[in-house]
Design a protein around this nucleic acid. Structure first.
Lengths: 220, 220
DNA sequence: ACATATTTTTAGATTCGTCTAAAAATATGT
DNA sequence: ACATATTTTTAGACGAATCTAAAAATATGT
């Protein structure tokens, strides 16, 4: 059975693989995990020896089929626990991550299955990230960054790109939470900021950075 | 912060202290934790150095105030998680222990408090064991082993002394679960076995051993 | 009370996950 | 294309948690 640490390495490699084509570098993993590169070298050797990853010296690593399956299971567990914490225990979306980070390592297939059912088999977590199904497959949906909408476009906020506490707390304060309706009233060429109407009521200007980190499902 | 292992040692010492007066021996801990006595010696030195226990060479250990608080928190978490698994996810009472053994190490005071509230602040877990409150205090109630009841006594099963899977599964099969009504119909001097009426319907003979491991709240 | 048995500790080793510092390999810029 | 910068690996060390085997302390029985 894998240790917490080994699981976290696989998860980190999975995450990096989503953003990058080709092998994942030692340095990238070290950065993602806040460890020294030398520690990563040691660990990837172990993971490679046990066929969780494919590793070539000085080249980087890929997840093996086995490693990929484990990483997806971890993400499934993490996101299901986030839904539990958010839906059932009323934690805010900026609080759920740290606790889920611990809970994702609980070992029990049965627990995951029952949790999934108990929560109504959710397809997305409190940040709008897709929850892998039992086979590791992610749901996909048509969504665009708010920054790509044009004048008079409108829709519902369904996810965030950035997950920092600061960003999530900012959104909470502006009522820009999941499920919120937004309409583009004005786009300022000067700095890319956007005036939007929130839930058909309040008007507000948000920066391009904020807009780029909000995912919208267009309406009409 | 304490490691999982250190937490488990404190919990083991707490459990042993409940059954025994005086210091807890190295051997007793080793037996409880399925480790070598030498490992225990090493660990108790560390725990003593950090003031979680009081340790005297060749004498044994006591929990310190601090260690006692931590142990009670662990038990609180363990039993609350058991209630969650049993009440909300419909695990059976022989399945909940192993998963709760992992969940008890999740670090978040807030999570424990919310869980407690979510579950309706239960005072007893699915085996009838008391759940410490936020201050570490156990609820107490008048209960007797079924083996101490006399003819015509009756009452409700509220707990078990033994927690083995085999015993719990046996009880499940006989419908001798928590909340079941039992009445003593006959006591056989020969081997101490008892004929009982289960839920005013079925009559059954159970061994003295079984009777001794069932806790009853008397009725009338 | 002394020999024997038991318990506990010490000594020395192992594995995991980490580190720093130095060496080796690879990438880059003019 | 060569010097320089960057990345990666190796080497050596450390702390946590474990083990086995042997030594030391304590307990027990006749």
């Amino acid at each position: 059975m894998l240790s917490f640490t080994e699981e976290n390495y696989l998860k980190a490699i999975f995450k990096l693989s989503e953003k990058t084509d080709g092998p994942i570098s030692t340095n990238a993993i070290a950065h993602e995990m806040n460890t020294a590169a030398a520690s990563v070298t040691d660990m990837v050797k172990r993971l490679a020896k046990n066929d969780f990853i494919l590793y070539e010296r000085y080249k980087g690593v890929f997840l093996s089929k086995q490693g990929d399956i484990i990483a997806r299971k971890l993400i499934r567990k993490h996101r299901l626990w986030e839904v539990f914490l958010f839906d059932k225990l009323n934690f805010t979306w900026d609080e759920v991550h740290d606790i889920a980070e611990q809970l994702e390592h609980i070992q029990s297939e049965e627990l995951v299955d029952r949790m999934d059912k108990y929560l109504g088999s959710p397809k997305f977590d409190p940040h709008g990230d897709p929850i892998p199904n039992k086979n590791g497959q992610f749901a996909i949906r048509e969504q665009d960054p708010l920054s790509e909408l044009v004048l008079k476009d409108k829709g519902i906020i369904v996810g965030v790109r950035e997950h920092s506490k600061a960003f999530l707390q900012y959104l909470e304060q502006c009522n820009l939470v999941l499920g919120t309706h937004v309409a583009v009233l004005e786009i300022f060429d000067y700095d890319g900021s956007i005036k939007i109407k929130i839930n058909h009521k309040i008007e507000q200007i948000i920066t391009q950075k904020v807009a780029n980190n909000l995912f919208i499902i267009k309406e009409e």
